[in-house]
C-alpha cells in the first residue's frame, strides 16, 4: 500500500501543475479568509466579531476553504486523465499492476491531498485563533477539520468517477463542475426532503454556512430547511464516497485498456 503511494509521489513531485494548484490553495485560503473579516459583507450570516476566534475559527476557515475544493478536485482529475492520455495506466498494468492497484493508488493519493489541506487549515486556523484569542480552548469544535477532510475526499471521489468514465482532462473537468450545478438544478425539481439526500448536497453541507446562532443548514436560496444533523450528513457522505470508489473500480474492470 505504502509503495503505491510512493509511486504516486514519484510521478507528482516533478509535476509543476501539482505545485501551482497547491500553491494557489495555500496562498488564497488565508488571504480570502482574512479578507472576509475585513470586508464584512452584511448578507453573510457570519459573526464577524468572533470570526477569527476559537472555536468559530474552525467552522469559518473550513467553510472558506471548501470553496477551493474544486481546485484540488480538478488537480486530481488532471492527474488521473494524464495516466490515460500518456497511456501510463496501460503500461503499469502491463508491467504488473492490477486495475485495483490503480484505483487504490488514486484513493491513497486523494486521501493524502485531503490530509495535506486539512493539516494546512489546522495551521492557519491555529494561527488566526491564537492571535485573536477566544473563550474556548482551541480543540473545541476541531471536528470541523475532520468533516472538512471527508468533504474534500467527497469532491475528489466525484472527480475520480468523472476521470475514469471520460478519460479526457478537459471534458472530465467540465463535467465535474457541471455535475455539481446540474444536481442543484435537479434538486429544485424534487421535493426538499428528497433533495437534501443528493450526493453533492450532502457533501457540500459538510462545511455548513456558519451563522451566529450555531450550526444551521441553509439551501442554495438561503432558506433554512429542516436540516439533517451534521453527524447523519457525515455518515451519508462516507457512504457516498465508498460508493464512488466502488463504481469507479467497476467502470475500470469492465473497460478494455486502449
Amino acid at each position: 500500500m505504502l509503495d503505491l503511494l510512493k509511486i504516486e509521489y514519484k510521478k507528482l513531485i516533478p509535476y509543476s501543475t501539482f505545485w501551482v494548484i497547491f500553491g494557489l490553495f495555500f496562498l488564497f485560503t488565508p488571504i480570502v479568509f482574512y479578507g472576509f473579516g475585513q470586508v464584512k459583507i452584511d448578507a453573510f450570516p457570519i459573526d464577524f466579531a468572533t470570526m477569527y476566534k476559537f472555536p468559530n475559527v474552525w467552522n469559518n476557515i473550513t467553510y472558506i476553504a471548501s470553496w477551493f475544493n474544486l481546485l484540488i478536485g480538478m488537480l486530481l482529475v488532471i492527474l488521473i486523465c494524464n495516466e490515460f492520455s500518456f497511456k501510463t495506466y496501460r503500461q503499469q498494468v502491463i508491467d504488473g499492476h492490477s486495475k485495483a492497484d490503480f484505483i487504490i493508488s488514486k484513493i491513497l493519493l486523494m486521501s493524502s491531498f485531503s490530509l495535506l489541506s486539512t493539516l494546512y487549515l489546522f495551521i492557519i486556523g491555529f494561527f488566526f485563533g491564537s492571535f485573536s484569542g477566544g473563550e474556548a480552548p482551541f480543540l473545541t469544535d476541531i471536528k470541523y477539520l475532520l468533516i472538512y477532510f471527508i468533504q474534500s475526499l467527497g469532491y475528489m471521489s466525484l472527480g475520480l468517477i468523472m476521470a475514469v468514465l471520460i478519460r479526457s482532462s478537459a471534458l472530465s473537468i467540465i463535467l465535474f463542475i457541471c455535475s455539481i450545478f446540474v444536481e442543484s438544478i435537479i434538486r429544485l425539481l424534487v421535493p426538499d426532503n428528497l433533495a437534501q439526500f443528493f450526493p453533492m448536497k450532502i457533501i457540500s453541507n459538510l462545511t455548513p454556512f456558519p451563522s451566529p446562532g450555531g450550526v444551521q443548514v441553509a439551501n442554495m436560496n438561503g432558506v433554512i430547511t429542516e436540516a439533517i444533523s451534521l453527524n447523519t450528513t457525515l455518515i451519508i457522505a462516507i457512504i457516498y464516497i465508498f460508493s464512488f470508489w466502488g463504481i469507479s473500480y467497476v467502470i475500470l474492470t469492465k473497460k478494455d485498456i486502449n
Partner: peptide
C-alpha cells in the same frame, strides 16, 4: 508505442 511520463 513507448508509454512514459513526458515531463519525467
Amino acid at each position: 508505442t513507448p508509454n512514459f511520463y513526458p515531463y519525467l
